[in-house]
Amino acid sequence: MERHLDENLTELKTNLLNMGAMVQKCISDSIESLKTLDTSKAKEVIECDEKIDKCELKIDEQCLDLLVLKQPVAVDFRFVTMVMKITNDLERIADLAVDISERVLELSGKPHLKPLIDIPKLTVIAQKMLEDALTSFINQDAELAKEVILRDTEANHLRDLIQEELIKDFIVKDSNSVTRAIPLLLIARHLERICDHTTNIAEYIIYMVEAKIVKHRSSEL
């Protein structure tokens, strides 16, 4: 039976995916600005944050309206409530892209300490995790969401390597490198946090699809 609610849910899905695409662009632009130390691109990311905040509010409002007016249950309830949580994490990811861009502004005018190798690698992991999380949302694919969660360990490991290298090879050895090393260290941390928020999103999608709570229980996956 065709339901009016289905139209609402489709609209919600579209809005969430649009927000997801905007957040993906913020991440890629922020890292692009890091590679080239392009401050105008970094500023674009910072300005885009407001649009993403508005998206979050709009989607939250839609979800609240649906909850109170349509009183969805079962799979519909899980979908609406998890979309509310996903928007929250997407907005936090956009904030982290802004944080990366702010670090880029701090680095501008100075050459890179060293060629960027591991930060782009960590970026690829973060971008792929988010892309797969959004794909798992589109296809309601819990298996893909589980794969996303498992990849977070790799991101943590890479962040540790980056931190270790920056501290051992630069900060400890040469105090003049600190102003350029600390922003890179923070960027690695921001990227790893993006992976954490993406992991949350994947966990919400598993609840949405399978009604299983996997948050804080990733060892059971």
Binding site: M1, R3, L5, P72, V73, A74, V75, D76, F77, R78, A211
Partner: peptide
């Protein structure tokens, strides 16, 4: 039952699909 029914028929009924 209302957040995660186990049977597809229960889900279809409570969500108004039939």
């Amino acid at each position: 039952i209302f957040t995660a029914p186990k049977d597809k028929r229960t889900e279809a009924y409570i969500t108004g699909r039939f």
